[in-house]
Nucleic acid binder design. Sequence first.
DNA 1: ATAAAGTCGACTGAATTGATCGGGAATTGG
DNA 2: CCAATTCCCGATCAATTCAGTCGACTTTAT
Lengths: 160, 160
Amino acid sequence: MRLTTKGRFAVTAMLDLALRQDNGPVTLAGVAERQRISLSYLEQLFGKLRRQELVASVRGPGGGYCLARDARNISVAQIITAVDEPLDATQCGGKENCLDEHRCMTHDLWSSLSRRMYDYLDSVNLHELMVQQRDKTTHRVVVHDHSARPGVSEMVRVQL
Amino acid sequence: MRLTTKGRFAVTAMLDLALRQDNGPVTLAGVAERQRISLSYLEQLFGKLRRQELVASVRGPGGGYCLARDARNISVAQIITAVDEPLDATQCGGKENCLDEHRCMTHDLWSSLSRRMYDYLDSVNLHELMVQQRDKTTHRVVVHDHSARPGVSEMVRVQL
DNA sequence: ATAAAGTCGACTGAATTGATCGGGAATTGG
DNA sequence: CCAATTCCCGATCAATTCAGTCGACTTTAT
């Protein structure tokens, strides 16, 4: 699983969509303007998201995109893997041609690690992000954490 | 935080190093051959790892690289961020020039999400990977001591 | 002195990123 | 029906990153 700004764009756009789909389909032009992402680029991303059946499209005036399922049922991992090319990552791609003493340590290690990464991102869904974002914009309740780790902090309390 | 094959190479090479440093410094030529990574490319990666003080070098015959500290004290996150360019990620980079109604949803969302990713990778250290790899190659038993992550609802709650 | 090893900088081809453009097809409102 | 709106698709592009290569250099053990 790759993690770049491309996936970030997709997650951001999906969140914008999720927060606004109550008033019917959301146009890409709107998302592009609000999130400052190129419209044509968004079209490419949403082409993939639609083919992965994460969103559904409505053509014509008044059209746009909606989530294809409940926000609770769309994970961040699904969004990212939908738009990112599948990072092959193993040079011995299943062929086991790395017959040295370690017998493909690379493959074992990375598949395990990337599996754990995926599991984590798969445990975060769109609905949680919506709640988190609503809390921020409406109540502006931001909890700063200055306790444990010095240097990096500023965490936000997520309401459940 | 970016996640590509570059970081994977670095983690793999560091693990190879960790598993062999008992017999003194490990040469990059050895790592390159065992892990099938270009020597010159490894040199670039280890240049960064050395400048980040994750490894120490010994020049001359019999030289090579050693870990700069205990394997328990080197996290996967440290390795990856050492070799990857810092992914800027925010188009409103601190400048807050995204003054629309959402007021920089992008920044808040992604910094929170990427922070959680970093925390996770920072919780995995080289020593764990060594144990896991040793178990695999000798007993072929996979240890999942880390898997007791809480469920979805608990995951959202950011540690305070 | 020689050889083994790290160090450094420049360079390269391929892929990916993010964006632009032009031309469609579907559908709605008038 | 017609025109505007919106999704859809393909080609193309500059910039960046990836992964690797090369050549020259420094340090040090024998």
